[in-house]
Simulated assay, not measured.
Amino acid sequence: MSIPTDTGDELAAVADLFGAVTRAELERALAELAFKQGSETDDGAVSAAIDAAIENYYLVAVDGAEREEALLAAGPVAFPTLPDGAEDLPHILDIPDRDPDRTALVAAAERRLRADAARAVDAEDADRIAQLLDVSYDLETWGGTDVSDVRRRLDDARENHN
């Protein structure tokens, strides 16, 4: 079947319930939601949804020296919206509450944006360039960081390749 969420906003909300989660913890949370909703999860669909949420900046992955696995936290484009039944997840799952380092989250999102922007410009990918322009504004608001240089490069690429 499918995953029990429809949007990156919902995946971000599930991660946000705990502050941040590992990918495996998010997969377990989604499986629990599916069970609560009377359906089953498709591992491929769950993995694809998480990948899409990361690619589209609903989730930000941040590494930590004390962990083997990156943590996923709500990202700059997310408007976390809890899916039905998610409010019970902290009582059901043995996932610790975490307080991810905000500076590290912002830095990770900014690094990704810079790398993604360079790839999109090099590939002359107009759709991705437009998407990343929007992300740049969201990142500045969400993270209090200045990525106007990235936005100028994306803007220039968009204007010169249309």
Rank of each mutant, 00 (worst) to 15 (best):
L30S: 12
D42R: 10
R28L: 15
G44R: 15
D42P: 00
S47T: 15
K36L: 15
G44N: 13
E40L: 06
A45F: 04
S47N: 11
A29F: 06
F35I: 09
E32P: 02
G44F: 14
Q37G: 10
A48V: 05
A34H: 06
T41D: 01
E32W: 11
E55T: 02
D51M: 07
D43L: 08
L26A: 06
L33E: 04
I54A: 09
L26Q: 03
A48D: 14
I54Q: 08
S47V: 10
E40W: 08
L26N: 02
F35S: 10
L26K: 03
Q37E: 07
L26G: 02
A29M: 06
V46N: 04
I54W: 01
G44Y: 12
Q37I: 03
D42F: 07
A49S: 14
S39W: 05
A34Q: 00
I50P: 04
Q37V: 04
V46E: 04
D43Y: 07
G44V: 10
S39K: 09
A45I: 12
D43E: 13
E32R: 13
N56R: 15
I54K: 10
A45H: 06
E32A: 14
Y57L: 04
G38N: 00
F35A: 15
A49C: 01
D42C: 01
T41Q: 08
A48W: 06
D43S: 11
I54N: 03
V46S: 10
G38S: 02
I50T: 02
E32V: 11
A29K: 01
E32K: 11
